[in-house]
């Protein structure tokens, strides 16, 4: 089953979003990480770490500024066997929609199509 990855500049945004979508779409695997060294920020290492733990194709969500750049670099360096997609959809609404679609069995391509219609 497709998994979800969330990278935010804030630890609370990451864990809060994870909490929200896990409650609305139970059984969906959500990897979430935010903040660097107790402060605000993202780095490639934390994304690498999450990617090393995914066990299926994964849709990734990001928030502001350099989070996209870091996410793109981590995905480009990813050497695992799963397909990693980056969604340019709002982090809360997008990951929520993806989680619900995953839970009812929609395939990844269709979910990505729906996410592409969400304006960030």
């Amino acid at each position: 089953m497709t998994e979800i990855l969330i990278i935010s500049h804030s630890k609370d945004i990451a864990s809060g979003t994870k909490e929200l979508i896990e409650q609305m779409a139970q059984g969906v695997t959500v990897h979430a990480s935010g903040g660097v060294g107790g402060g605000i920020g993202t780095n490639i290492g934390q994304i690498d770490h999450m990617l090393s733990e995914v066990e299926s194709d994964t849709i990734c969500f990001f928030d502001i500024g350099s989070s996209l750049m870091n996410l793109e670099m981590a995905v480009e360096m990813y050497e695992g066997e799963h397909e990693i997609h980056i969604a340019n959809a709002p982090i809360v609404e997008g990951s929520f929609l993806a989680a619900v679609e995953i839970s009812i069995g929609t395939n990844t391509a269709e979910i990505m199509e729906k996410l592409s219609e969400m304006v960030k």
């Binding site: 660097v36 920020g41 780095n43 490639i44 290492g45 500024g65 870091n70 670099m73 480009e76």
Partner: peptide, 18 residues
């Protein structure tokens, strides 16, 4: 470099070296 510099410059320099 990627692991130690914050902001945009670290990842950009670091990834370029890779």
């Amino acid at each position: 470099l990627m692991g130690s510099i914050g902001g945009a410059s670290g990842p950009l320099y670091g990834f370029s070296f890779v």
